[in-house]
Computed example of a mutant assay.
Amino acid sequence: MRATGIGSFPGTEQRDQDEALAMVLGELGGDEQGLPFLPEVPGRGAHATMVGRTLGLVGELDADLQPSGWRLTGTSGSLPLDQRRGRSLLSQDLDGLEERASGRTGGFKVQVAGPWTLAATVERPRGDKVLADHGARRELAQALAVAVADHVADVRRRLPAATELVLQVDEPALPAVLGGGVPTASGFGRHRTVHPPEASDALRWVLEGSRDAGAVPWVHCCAADVPFDLLRGAGARGVLVDLSLLDADGHDAAAEALEAGDTVALGVVPSEEGGPAGDAALVERVQRWIDMLGVDLDRVSGSLLVSPACGLAGASPAWARRAIELSRSVARSLTG
């Protein structure tokens, strides 16, 4: 059994990013029980958020930053300044990673925002979300598929000794997209439901892009109603979830994924201080879950990870470190 994190960390400056990376590599990069990852420090500004970093990768569409958030410009040519800043900041983070970890073997994980979370967040040139326009959301997903393939190739070049590269596609908005729960610009209505076949197609393009470039595609969805079947049908070989949010169907779907040999990362460590935070209590929680599913822990432990429930951007620096330490400790205890 391994331990990992979701991605985000607290902080507001570049040194916070550097310290987070050093901590992740120190806690999770020492042996095969850890899956280290590239931290994100969104407190550095809009260009450092999940959406800003991902749009920086998407060279086929232009986007700029408005008071309401990120917006596609509908123009082509050189990337707008805000998009270039997002790309530059991510490149700077990758430079730091390469400097510290280029010779490391084992696995490594990087994260991008998924096509449906982008569609539910980014605006069209004339207003409202990309989600409102079938053609625009298709174009965005296809551009993202190209971008993640290039991103994976870049990370592989920087980490040539890594034996496994995981691309985590963050889709916190996907359940709302499928359920017609994303608000319109006015706030008085909701965008129409996106039906599963279309949702699956867009995800498949992105996941296949990462897989063809040499990464193992996972999807993170720390929300209720995680659509396990849709994610796995689209090509996700791993799903990261908040265990406290899973309903009965979610538990069953997680068991099916494990039985099939796919990865499940259990978010059991609180993302902020509070709740059960001792090693023994968290180990017992995972063991109870395994017993409830009726699966053999020894048989599925290679496909099971322990992580914080969600990102750590809202935590204190001390708790962010403690959450990663606890994830590693719980995984070690369950493996032993």
Rank of each mutant, 00 (worst) to 15 (best):
Q14H: 05
G59T: 14
P36A: 02
G5P: 01
A101E: 06
A136H: 02
L89V: 12
L97T: 10
T12R: 11
G59C: 01
F9M: 04
P42Q: 08
W116I: 04
L97P: 08
P10E: 01
L57S: 07
S68H: 07
A119N: 03
G135Y: 01
V122H: 12
L118E: 07
V148L: 07
T73C: 08
G52S: 12
A3K: 09
E27P: 06
D16T: 04
S8T: 15
R85A: 12
R87K: 14
P80K: 00
A101G: 09
A119Q: 03
L21P: 02
G106T: 02
I6L: 15
V110A: 12
Q66H: 12
V112G: 05
G114V: 08
A63C: 14
R53W: 10
T54A: 09
R126C: 10
G77M: 09
E99Y: 01
G107M: 01
G11K: 00
D31Q: 00
D18S: 13
A3D: 07
A145G: 13
D93N: 11
L97D: 11
A149Q: 11
P39C: 10
L21E: 03
G103P: 02
G106D: 08
G103H: 13
L25K: 06
R71I: 07
L55M: 13
G30Y: 06
M23V: 09
L144S: 04
D95P: 05
L89E: 09
T49I: 03
G135H: 08
P10W: 03
T49R: 06
G74D: 11
A143E: 11
G106K: 00
R15S: 06
D64P: 04
P10R: 00
Q92P: 02
M50G: 06
R124D: 10
T75D: 15
A143T: 07
M23K: 01
G135T: 06
Q111A: 08
V122N: 11
G45T: 13
T54E: 09
K129L: 15
G69T: 13
L118A: 12
K109I: 03
G96Q: 13
R2G: 09
Q83S: 09
M23T: 15
P67I: 02
P39S: 14
T121A: 10
Q142A: 15
A22R: 15
G135D: 12
S68F: 04
S76F: 05
D133I: 00
P42L: 03
S8D: 14
L35Q: 07
L57V: 09
T117A: 05
A63H: 10
G30D: 13
W116H: 09
T73L: 04
G107Q: 06
R2S: 06
D82Y: 06
G59F: 02
Q66R: 14
D64Q: 08
S78T: 11
D150G: 15
P80S: 01
A20E: 04
R124T: 12
S76N: 03
V112T: 15
L72T: 09
E98W: 07
L65K: 06
F37W: 07
S91D: 15
G135V: 03
L65Q: 12
R137Y: 02
G11P: 02
A63R: 04
A149T: 04
A46R: 15
G74M: 14
G74V: 10
R104N: 14
G26I: 03
G5K: 00
H47G: 05
L79Q: 15
S68W: 09
L140Q: 10
L65I: 13
H47Y: 13
A22Y: 06
V24G: 06
L28E: 05
R53T: 11
Q17C: 04
